[in-house]
Design a protein around this nucleic acid. Sequence first.
DNA 1: GGGTGTATTTCGGCG
DNA 2: CGCCGAAGTACACCC
Lengths: 257, 257
Amino acid sequence: MIRQQLLMPSPEDLADFLNRHTRSRDCLVQVAGLAEVTYQGRAASTADVGTYLVVVKQDGSLQIHHPTGIKPMNWQPKTDSITARVDEDVCMLLASRRSPEELVQVVFLEPQMALALELAQAGGFVLRGSEAEMQQTLAEHPELIEPGLRVLNRELMVESGGIDLYARDAQGRYVVVELKRGRATQHAVSQLARYVRSVEGKLPAKAVVRGILAAPSITTPARLELENRGLEFREVSALPQATAAAGGPVAQPSLFD
Amino acid sequence: MIRQQLLMPSPEDLADFLNRHTRSRDCLVQVAGLAEVTYQGRAASTADVGTYLVVVKQDGSLQIHHPTGIKPMNWQPKTDSITARVDEDVCMLLASRRSPEELVQVVFLEPQMALALELAQAGGFVLRGSEAEMQQTLAEHPELIEPGLRVLNRELMVESGGIDLYARDAQGRYVVVELKRGRATQHAVSQLARYVRSVEGKLPAKAVVRGILAAPSITTPARLELENRGLEFREVSALPQATAAAGGPVAQPSLFD
DNA sequence: GGGTGTATTTCGGCG
DNA sequence: CGCCGAAGTACACCC
Ligand SMILES: [Mg+2]
Ligand SMILES: [Mg+2]
């Protein structure tokens, strides 16, 4: 599973190692050691000499980590070309990308270790509690939002964006539903207001369009803004245990029964 | 710089290794091999048996990478506790966090390699081309937005959020400026409209408040929406070479002279 | 801790 | 490719 490992490689050996294993596209390559990193593209950055961990995955994605933090200091999600070369007796790695035009350059001053790992098989991955899942559940059980609600569309595209759920209520009024898997903010209220406006613009002038923000909770300013605009809030939870934990024996039907 | 490395460690050795090096808080720890990962918190996920790379940094942050992609499959930015133990003859790693309550669990079925790296010194890091930098430059040179503009506040807090630049124009009218370092979208137009509304609410009823969206470019639907609402667009660039490359010898003054 | 906004956001989906 | 919106977003900043 360890394809190859080098300790304190020479610039030439490191460049060779990097070119070989990144081109094979079948292993994860990493280099740890003293380096200098520059980036130019949508923005630009420079990192002084320091000890970093450089990782190149099979798909050519590049990330450069400093000692702390979840996010890499520099990165490149997709690279059009990734090459190593020796220049002035140091090995440097150049990762470039068109559209957007970006370049990350790593100068390895004192590489301590280079490692190529075979990270072949990835198992299936399932995420639960996403907004998409909420949407599907609520499309199947719109009564969890309101009795008598009938869903007409999911992700209905209007000029201003995609309406999560487009529905009609028991009185036949059109309803725009904006979903949030987490606490709803003023941003969500803005979205909902925009969608309601778009729908009103497409319907006869007198038509009443309701707007419902459905989320597990809502911030205080968002609630105020929502009421100011004549829009509504409906509490729904993204995960089953959320309602169970909060309400003990659930009085209201859960999203995940 | 390599503190310790184990090849195909036993469950006991791996648990010991992980507990020792994650507690010392002075090195980056990684384990590669066959594993199973589950997560429960704001959402929930399961990853089937597969070959993953698990990284724990000095600050206790955890990331679990699959063979491709820039983003980790599972992660934990800050951990309140991170412990390894042996259960049913396998080593498992438990990373937990309160607020939000989250738990990541890694079951190492066939650990191939464990590595502890000293990634001590990090050099300085400088990023250029951020919106914050744009804001500072434009606060110092508001004439780049419009001749006669005087900036009153930066990040002025109103109910609906923070106004990037609050200013008065040559005719004494108040101006709300929303900045974007990249192409401006309908979201930016919504923000600007909200801020203008908030400011109008605080001023005498007759007061005219202008809204300017300043960005390198704007999407077509955003431009339409902007004009509908009586708001304005002004082209400004986040990085110096952007104007230089686009216009050759610059006729307009650059943000970075 | 609540609330808001930025990000080299990344990523997926749709026209 | 342009555009929009979600994300277990993370992260910084203010109140
Ligand atoms: Mg939505
Ligand atoms: Mg802003």
